[in-house]
């Protein structure tokens, strides 16, 4: 139990730092508004090495912390909907398919982007956004999902986790 809490704390801190790096240091390197999703690496590792509950805990606490630090009520709605849709899809795919870390990560990233776009269309009341932003968000989801999936796979190969939790 104690060890699990320690791991959770460590992963939340790491995810938070990744969120900071993306929000502050490397914002808009590629295309304005498109992010890599570095924090998702931590969520993936949590999901694979510790299970659904841990992944959920890390994801939701990170979103709340980041929201309180950089965002406002509206950006929080986007983060929660994106994060939770991605997580739910990743849990389902991991459980019911033989998808690898990379495949699950791609699906999660795409789900994250589509969910945020849907929320934007609803909150902003502008349905044109769907057509103009969907292609970019789908393709960036595939690319960034592959990037985080490859990094996640590499991290898990090299990391040694204590077997008894």
């Amino acid at each position: 139990m104690g060890k699990k809490v320690a791991y959770a704390g460590m992963m939340i801190a790491l995810a938070f730092v990744f969120g900071y790096i993306e929000n502050v240091a490397i914002r808009d390197v590629f295309i304005p508004g498109i992010k890599i999703g570095l924090a998702n690496i931590v969520v993936i590792v949590a999901l694979w090495k510790f299970g659904n509950k841990m992944a959920f805990t890390v994801s939701i606490i990170r979103v709340v912390l980041s929201g309180a630090t950089y965002g406002n009520a509206y950006s929080f709605v986007y983060s929660v909907s994106g994060g939770m849709c991605a997580l739910i899809l990743m849990i389902v795919l991991k459980k019911y398919t033989n998808f690898s870390v990379k495949g699950v990560s791609v699906a999660g990233a795409v789900a994250h982007n589509v969910a945020q776009l849907l929320v934007a269309v609803i909150l902003l009341g502008n349905k044109w956004l769907f057509v103009s932003y969907l292609p970019l968000l789908l393709i960036s989801g595939v690319i960034m999902g592959l990037v985080t999936g490859v990094i996640g796979t590499a991290v898990m190969k090299r990391m040694i986790f204590s077997e008894r939790l």
């Binding site: 398919t97 998808f99 990379k102 495949g103 791609v106 292609p135 789908l138 393709i139 595939v142």
Partner: peptide, 28 residues
């Protein structure tokens, strides 16, 4: 198969997503 890269279903998912993106882009 895993060492080589992605599984068949995963590739299929990626292709499907890209096809949807392209179709929406063209219609746009």
């Amino acid at each position: 198969k895993e060492v080589k890269g992605l599984k068949k279903k995963e590739k299929l998912l990626i292709v499907a997503v890209i096809v949807v993106a392209v179709v929406v882009m063209i219609s746009g």
